[in-house]
Amino acid sequence: MMYHTSPSLLCADQLRLGETVELLNGLGIDWFHIDVMDGSFVPNFAFGADAIRAVCSAAKRPVYAHVMAVNPQNHIESFAALGCDYFCFHLETTNNPFRLCQQIRAAGMKPAAALNPATGVERLADLLDCLDAVTLMSVEPGFSGQSFLPFMYDKIAALHRMIGGRPVLIEVDGGVNNEIARRCLGCGCDIVVGGYFTLFQKGKAISECYQSFEEAIKEEKV
């Protein structure tokens, strides 16, 4: 089984973002997780078009746009034009997820859906065949540095069982440290978002943090 990590660029040093992307390109990460927040669906703002375009231009790995915004259908074409590879919308923001997935795929991106902690995975049962990935929020969306919600282990396992043999990746986002990452991977997730508790630890080099992460998850037997 392959383990994956996706650095959250929201947690990176914003004054050195380009340098950070170049460093991460060479570390073996699986994709860049870039948060987009509109100040409405979540109480925060993050990453406008110019920043996303710059990241997409510099990234040698896929760019996963986690769109925490109302009316996600209004942003599909623009995010495709910016160069994003994945477009992840929140299931809570739409009544037409099947149409949204079709529009995302037609624009040349891979559709993904995110679920807030209070949203049950059973709501994805009929949608899974339309998705390439699911992001399970393990904290309330909108701010980095929150504590992981422990009931998420069961939720990860339930989604893993529901997916079965489908080629749908499970990403876990929020409050993940190395120990939590190991447990999440053991429950069936494929990718953990690397933030302040893993890849961007204060006072440590990113490469050092990544090595520690890799060593920690190799201990998991699945």
Rank of each mutant, 00 (worst) to 15 (best):
S57D: 15
G165V: 01
D85A: 04
A59C: 09
V70D: 05
A54W: 13
R166D: 00
F89M: 06
F41Q: 09
R166F: 02
Q14S: 10
V42I: 05
L100I: 10
C11T: 06
N96D: 14
L149R: 09
S6Q: 08
P150I: 07
Q102M: 08
G175A: 07
T93W: 10
Q103N: 06
E179Q: 14
L185H: 07
M162I: 10
P72Q: 01
L23G: 03
S57V: 09
S144N: 10
S212M: 15
A69I: 01
E122I: 15
V134Q: 01
P150F: 07
M109Q: 02
G28H: 03
E22S: 11
N96P: 13
V36L: 05
A113D: 07
R53V: 02
N116T: 08
A118V: 11
E19V: 08
G39L: 06
T135E: 06
L115R: 06
R183T: 06
P117R: 05
V168M: 05
G164Q: 10
H90R: 09
A81K: 12
G174Y: 13
G175K: 10
N178S: 12
I206R: 01
E92C: 11
M1I: 09
Q146V: 00
Y64C: 10
E215N: 13
R166P: 03
D50M: 12
I52M: 06
Y210K: 00
Y3D: 14
E220T: 15
G18Y: 07
D85N: 13
P117K: 02
V139P: 02
A181D: 09
L128K: 11
A58H: 11
H75Q: 03
G194E: 09
V222A: 08
M109I: 02
S147N: 07
N71E: 01
D50G: 04
F87C: 04
W31P: 01
M68C: 05
G26L: 08
I170A: 05
P167I: 06
E220W: 15
F32I: 04
C11S: 15
L127M: 15
M137F: 00
E122F: 15
I156L: 13
A107I: 03
L136N: 07
L149S: 04
W31V: 03
H75D: 02
C84Y: 12
L169H: 08
G195C: 12
F87M: 06
